[in-house]
């Protein structure tokens, strides 16, 4: 629950950041397009499996809020005209989506899956989303490096986004010990750790700047 709330909080902070400041400076559209793709490919089970009301509501909430973030940065005046396309340069289709798709296909085939049923395709899309989420923040980290001086709200949003997956690691350890019949999913574990590590450097400078109480900027 803490992990999910960090995730929700990071989305709220980002929406506030866009709506209140009415600009998208220092924000990577590409990262949010990747997250939208992550949610759309992971939550196809909205139509096939019901876990709980909480689970379904959150899934719909993530898809809706991320869509609205992408919409605002792409199309909504005056926000979209402040989006700095020239700084958001990570080639996310070639270096994130394509490799994750190949990796998901390989994982699926190696673990004995086929490609001939809806459930198989769904399973592969789910694996793809796990891989893609782990690196979806990369375009945003690149933009951050370019701007160096990080606005408070932008910094907070990335901090909560990183904390969310870190707390999931705690959750997996807890479930592995205390939940009878919990199956290990090593792809999920590996990607969760990778995802958290990608934030490690950012966490360090973020916490240092909070302790000093000053402005937050990244080193060159």
């Amino acid at each position: 629950l803490c992990g999910d709330m960090c995730h929700v909080f990071s989305i709220i902070v980002l929406l506030l950041r866009l709506r209140v400041a009415r600009n998208a400076q220092g924000i990577s559209l590409r990262t949010h397009e990747l997250f939208l793709l992550v949610f759309l490919t992971r939550y196809t089970d909205l139509f096939t499996t019901f876990y709980s009301l909480y689970n379904s509501v959150m899934k719909v909430l993530y898809i809706a809020s991320t869509s609205s973030i992408v919409y605002a940065i792409r199309l909504q005046e005056p926000i979209c005209s402040t989006y700095d396309r020239a700084q958001d340069t990570f080639r996310h289709w070639a270096f994130a989506v394509a490799p994750c798709a190949v990796l998901a296909l390989l994982t699926h085939l190696i673990s004995g899956g086929s490609l001939f049923s809806f459930v198989d395709i769904q399973e592969m899309l789910w694996t793809f989303s796990i891989y893609l989420e782990s690196i979806a923040i990369l375009p945003q980290l690149i933009v951050l490096q370019r701007f160096r001086e990080v606005e408070n709200l932008t910094g907070n949003y990335i901090f909560f986004m990183g904390s969310y997956r870190a707390l999931y690691i705690v959750n997996w350890i807890f479930r592995a010990y205390y939940e009878p019949g919990y199956r290990h999913h090593y792809v999920v574990y590996f990607c969760g750790v990778l995802q958290t590590l990608l934030y490690a450097d950012f966490f360090y400078y973020y916490l240092m700047s909070k302790r000093r109480g000053g402005k937050f900027s990244l080193p060159t």
């Binding site: 999910d4 995730h7 089970d45 499996t49 876990y51 689970n55 959150m58 899934k59 993530y62 789910w126 999931y168 959750n171 997996w172 939940e179 009878p180 019949g181 919990y182 199956r183 290990h184 999913h185 999920v188």
Partner: peptide, 10 residues
């Protein structure tokens, strides 16, 4: 308990 994995997570 029933067999479960991370698919019931977000």
């Amino acid at each position: 308990g029933k067999d479960q994995d991370a698919k019931d997570e977000l």
